[in-house]
């Protein structure tokens, strides 16, 4: 009985946010004290497909920024994790990579704002990508550092002994072995960028309207129905991945990733 009650509470606690957002996204006119909106229709959702829709523009921009940041961070993190893996100060390098997380990205955004202005990167797509990259890259580095184990180097050396070139060894051995962790790193960096609000707001100066910024704007405009749609769109990629790929774990903790 107790177990059932716990299950029920847990299911409600976890699924209620999605249900409430779904309800709001299809709702219209939610006047107190009505528990549910007066009308349910797809009108707000259909706005998403109109050519001048702010949400679809934000969606496109968010996808572009997150993909760029994730690709750049994963690529660079892979290269640098290999270079650092042979250093005798490897652990010290990894500890340094924790810095941006401990010091809060938003506070770093405040500190970086001046440099973004001087370099003419504020309120620009590239400025936001660069700022998010500076946060995602250390995270990617921490994830990928765990890949370069003794075992991987042994396999690589074996392939060299058997006559493989550096390129062949990378293409046929290292890359296939690294694929799962590269996928994890890419997805994690994508999510950090996808979820970011503070840094984008500060460096983008409110001009780079990603989905998270749209949610805030809609809330400020008291348009909770559009805010709910933008929120559901934000939830979509991680939920999709969770549903289809259980292998990719959500490693939020810095300890866990190390």
């Amino acid at each position: 009985m107790l177990k059932r009650t716990i299950h029920l509470v847990l299911i409600t606690l976890i699924l209620l946010p999605i249900l409430v957002l779904m309800m709001l996204s299809f709702g219209e006119q939610w006047i107190f004290p009505d528990v549910f909106p007066q009308n349910f229709n797809t009108k707000t959702w259909l706005k998403l497909f109109s050519s001048d829709s702010e949400i679809s523009k934000s969606l496109g921009l968010s996808v572009l920024i997150s993909l760029s940041v994730a690709f750049l961070s994963t690529l660079m993190a892979f290269v640098f994790s290999k270079v650092i893996s042979t250093s005798k100060y490897k652990n010290q390098y990894i500890k340094l990579a924790y810095l941006p997380y401990i010091l809060s990205p938003v506070v770093l955004g405040v500190l970086w704002h001046y440099f973004a202005v001087v370099l003419k990167l504020n309120a620009s797509f590239f400025g936001v990508v660069l700022a998010q990259f500076l946060i995602c890259f250390p995270f990617g580095f921490i994830i990928l550092s765990s890949f370069w184990s003794r075992h991987i180097y042994d396999i690589q050396n074996l392939s060299f002994t058997l006559g493989a070139s550096t390129y062949f060894s990378f293409k046929r051995i290292i890359f296939p072995l690294a694929k799962p962790i590269l996928g994890l790193c890419f997805f994690q960096c994508f999510l950090i960028s996808w979820f970011d609000y503070g840094l984008t707001q500060l460096i983008g100066g409110g001009q780079i309207k990603t989905l998270t910024l749209s949610v805030f704007n809609f809330i400020k405009e008291a348009n909770i129905f559009l805010a709910a749609i933008a929120s559901l769109l934000l939830l979509f990629p991680p939920l999709l991945l969770l549903f289809f790929n259980k292998k990719i774990k959500f490693k939020r903790s810095l300890i866990n990733t190390h």
């Binding site: 976890i14 699924l15 999605i18 957002l21 709910a228 934000l234 939920l239």
Partner: peptide
């Protein structure tokens, strides 16, 4: 148990 980890802080705050 993994579902709430898909929530950005902004969305959870809105909820």
């Amino acid at each position: 148990i993994f579902v709430p980890l898909c929530f950005p802080a902004t969305v959870m705050a809105l909820y």
